[in-house]
Design a protein around this nucleic acid. Structure first.
Lengths: 361, 361
DNA sequence: ATTAGCACTCGAAAGGAAAGAGTGCCAACA
DNA sequence: TGTTGGCACTCTTTCCTTTCGAGTGCTAAT
């Protein structure tokens, strides 16, 4: 199976150099820089073999080599040296996360922005929740036409809504409804909110003005939007940093896809264990628009059945190791802050577990 | 003073054509299309004069003419025929607004996205509030370590926060604090939340565990973020539709500026009366990055001391009249929905009041 | 005042030559 | 057998020149 050690070194050198320069890399520069003691002619022979093995390709005869997706895959799985960020970088990321997260509730937008800033690629953040329920209701009576619904969800976020009624409603009714909803509508999922339940509540509360249905609508709305995966893409413009997107049409196409909330993630169920990093290279992506881009995704644990992902999108020629390291820090930070549970201490460089498609194993 | 009627017609023809094609327009095509009965030679003479008057310019000798910012200004102020959108278009916009706004609280992001979709230019939305206060507090006791702060603001939005304490706190204390905050912290602005006030409240509540300061922090945070102007830019990628931004560097620069929340708006106090449309052409913009772009801004009234703006950014060669018409509908819709007050009925095409710099009057 | 005609200008597009990077292969070598 | 220097070859990139054409400015005629 495997290929010779030297071939691997050469492949790694090609990838590193290509990532850095975005230019096809020639035998000469490898001989000069990669520090294996042999001449360019030898390298040429090896390169030719790597091409026929499918790890590299040539844009045209008499140009240098660039990695194929298969080449990147091997690089990511085996070759790339796990990037240790400097302590300053790590601290910087953590500090910025602290600033942003002070008030983090559902502002995954901030996370996404942060990831984009830190990596200098477009980034996306998304969360999927399963089975969110309401833990507790409170109805706050404000005045005869107005009350506030407050709901504490099972994921410990709080939703509210100010309700203005066209009719007056008396405080007693609000209290009755508050009690009824607390007993009848807590700890149930959206599907369990049936017209039957609503009707019987309405009758029990002796509500002749339709207040019950207003509250029920809020419940449904809250539960369904809480469960709906929410996504946020930001920093699309950073795509234009990359030489491969200097063609405005290409850039536009991908950016349009991204900001359309285009979906990227492999598929819902492949949200892996928190802490893992997943790399999808070029054609490994499902979406047509991403076929020649790569996506690096980190999964974090946001507690209570909530999994989140942060990821970045870039050209296949991407600085996988740095990006993976940075995302890993972000994901660990998020797990620590949101997961509620026991989490690795802040300062620690956490181990990267890189995982990708299985096709090369 | 003004220039001859025919010159105006010619100028309008140049702008219209240039907006459509993005190519310098020559005397011949004007003679053919503008329908004033004279030959291209005559047009040429007129064009030459328009150039020397400063309304047009030539990229180079022997090219057609393109409008200068001054030319656009005249066009916007006097020449452009107010676009009447078709009924379908109007309805479409209103319908989409209805969908989005159902749950509009502070999701100006949605508005911005909508504006961008509708106009096909990048769009921004922003709101400035002045003097927001808290109308009413409720502290909801959840368990010994947990309570929820609910605040109803003067602009009728509700903010909340779930507070988890490291220590147990008894229900009585929560009630006392609730009452104290309701009397002491309502109807005051951020500046009035002094350490003195906080201290005295803490003492009055007999709070030895620092709960008071947690709530006070929430108050400060809430008031300051409510007053902070919030902005949202979206659809940056649509910039790439425009031929003048095919140069990725140019595009990147502007997009970076935009998504950096770069600020565009002329200046805070120039938020004009709701219903007005403001056009800033090229160098009329203050920001260096916008010097060769144009901005069209509509102001709407969001009720209770809140003014909002929605605007779009595009090249100076912009379809001002359509954009103005569309923004006008959006702004009217927002005023109607958010302003609470009396507003023009939905179906009505509202009159455009276009306002720009005064320099040409 | 308008128009037809014409020489002129200047950019954009097309063609071609030269430069340069990098390869593939061969013959020599350890 | 694996490695190396050398060299001819290929293909792209760049630059220069030429050509083409749109559009002008001017002039003389109406």
């Amino acid at each position: 199976m495997g290929i010779s050690e030297r071939k691997k070194k050469i492949l790694a050198a090609v990838v590193d150099e290509y990532v850095r320069t975005a230019e096809p890399v020639g035998s000469k520069s490898i001989a000069a820089n990669a520090g294996l003691g042999c001449s360019s002619a030898t390298i040429r022979n090896e390169l030719a073999e790597l091409v026929s093995l499918g790890y590299l390709e040539q844009p045209h005869t008499s140009a240098g080599r660039i990695p194929t997706p298969m080449g990147y895959r091997l690089y990511v799985n085996e070759l790339m040296q796990k990037q240790k960020l400097s302590l300053e970088e790590t601290e910087d990321i953590n500090r910025r996360m602290n600033q942003k997260l002070r008030e983090l509730d559902d502002t995954i937008g901030d996370i996404s922005r942060l990831a984009s800033q830190v990596t200098n690629y477009p980034a996306l953040a998304l969360t999927t929740r399963t089975a969110v329920t309401i833990k507790r209701f409170d109805l706050i009576y404000v005045d005869a036409n107005t009350f506030i619904i407050v709901a504490l969800l099972s994921d410990n976020t709080v939703k509210n809504k100010l309700v203005k009624l066209p009719v007056s409603v008396d405080q007693k009714l609000v209290q009755r409804l508050s009690a009824l909803f607390n007993s009848g509508f807590t700890n149930i999922t959206e599907e369990a909110v049936t017209p039957l339940l609503i009707n019987s509540t309405e009758r029990a509360a002796d509500d002749t003005m339709g207040v019950t249905s207003v509250i029920a609508a809020f419940v449904i709305e809250t539960l369904s939007s809480a469960v709906a995966p929410s996504a946020f893409v930001s920093g699309e413009n950073r795509l234009l940093n990359q030489p491969e997107f200097r063609d405005p049409d290409k850039a536009h196409k991908l950016m349009g896809y991204l900001s359309g909330g285009g979906y990227i993630l492999p598929s819902e169920e492949s949200l892996d264990e928190a802490g893992e990093i997943k790399v999808l290279i070029g054609p490994e992506n499902v979406a047509e628009e991403l076929k020649d881009s790569s996506v690096v995704i980190a999964t974090y644990d946001a507690g209570d059945n909530t999994r989140g992902m942060i990821g970045v999108i870039g050209p296949t020629r991407m600085d996988y190791s740095t990006v993976a390291a940075k995302l890993s820090i972000l994901a660990a930070g998020l797990s620590r802050r949101l997961g509620g549970g026991e989490a690795p201490p802040e300062g620690m460089h956490n181990k990267l577990i890189i995982k990708g498609d299985r096709e090369n194993e």
